[in-house]
Amino acid sequence: MLRCKQVSKALADKKYWELPLRQRIGLRLHVFCCIVCGPFNRFLMLMQDATRHYLQHEQQDTPPDDLRLPPESKKSILDALHSTDRNDHGQE
């Protein structure tokens, strides 16, 4: 029971891959065998893993249409950038 508490606490505060290797091995073993906290913590670990994958994709993949910068926003950002650029250099 004490172990369940420690495991749950560790996983709530950190992502499991941020933990030291030794701790990670014990923790995985516990989570995959335990009938008390196992189901909950396996789900937690799965979602942490999903989040990690997501963060990688987020910086690389072109977003879907509904999550892209709308054309009018693009235009207003460009206008702002161009006017700053001109003020900085007093040219063009």
Binding site: R68, L69, L81, D85
Partner: peptide, 15 residues
């Protein structure tokens, strides 16, 4: 700036 917005704008916006 045009290239910046073209290359990174969508990804930054989604984020």
């Amino acid at each position: 700036p045009d290239r910046w917005v073209e290359e990174h704008g969508d990804i930054m916006y989604r984020y």
